[in-house]
Simulated assay, not measured.
Amino acid sequence: MAPESMNGLPVTVLAVWVLCVLGWAAVLAGLRRGLRGPSRGPALFAHTLTPAAVVLLFSLVGFGSLYASIALAAEWWALILVTGLRPERLLATGGLGRLAAWAAVTAAATLLAGRLILG
């Protein structure tokens, strides 16, 4: 049986953070592999700043970083699922259909994970 907490930090929070980091790293690898040309630098820069910027935004608005971590993990794993590990497909070849699928999967995953983790 798994412990409920590790030094006072719930295991579910650690699981969300691990999923968030793994999703971020997978999208970063896809961006590094797939993007070429002048859009590569700004895309990699924006992706690198995203976790800190979103956590800061949520803290300024008054929500905790757990909400941000759940939303980011859902976004990155939905992006991986919809684009097949090639994030450049989201806009390059997918059109609005792939973008809509990404938004729908992200919303469903965020809602489901939020209900499971937050109660």
Results as ranks from 00 to 15, higher is better:
115 R>Y: 13
30 G>E: 02
56 L>R: 01
97 G>E: 07
78 A>Q: 01
98 R>H: 08
49 L>A: 15
105 V>R: 01
73 A>W: 00
88 E>P: 07
46 A>M: 12
37 G>P: 09
86 R>G: 02
31 L>H: 07
66 L>R: 02
96 L>T: 15
96 L>A: 14
95 G>L: 02
105 V>K: 05
83 T>Y: 05
58 F>E: 04
108 A>L: 14
7 N>W: 08
60 L>P: 00
36 R>I: 08
11 V>C: 01
66 L>F: 01
32 R>S: 11
4 E>I: 10
23 G>S: 04
49 L>E: 05
109 A>D: 04
91 L>T: 14
41 G>N: 08
39 S>Y: 05
67 Y>Q: 03
91 L>A: 11
50 T>M: 15
27 V>N: 04
28 L>A: 15
91 L>G: 10
42 P>S: 08
78 A>Y: 05
88 E>V: 07
60 L>R: 02
114 G>Q: 01
66 L>M: 06
19 L>K: 04
9 L>T: 13
36 R>K: 15
105 V>W: 01
32 R>G: 07
94 G>D: 09
46 A>D: 03
72 L>E: 01
20 C>R: 09
51 P>T: 11
14 L>H: 09
54 V>D: 01
21 V>F: 04
56 L>S: 08
64 G>I: 02
78 A>C: 09
109 A>W: 00
83 T>C: 11
87 P>D: 00
47 H>Q: 10
17 W>Y: 10
44 L>C: 11
73 A>Y: 08
101 A>H: 08
3 P>E: 11
54 V>W: 01
98 R>I: 12
10 P>H: 02
56 L>N: 07
72 L>W: 05
45 F>D: 15
11 V>L: 12
27 V>I: 14
16 V>E: 03
118 L>M: 14
18 V>L: 10
37 G>N: 10
61 V>P: 05
65 S>D: 10
72 L>G: 09
56 L>I: 02
73 A>F: 04
9 L>W: 03
51 P>K: 07
32 R>D: 00
115 R>C: 12
5 S>W: 04
116 L>C: 03
59 S>F: 03
38 P>R: 12
26 A>Y: 09
117 I>K: 10
25 A>I: 08
107 A>G: 11
41 G>C: 03
71 A>G: 05
18 V>P: 00
81 L>V: 13
47 H>W: 15
27 V>G: 00
29 A>R: 14
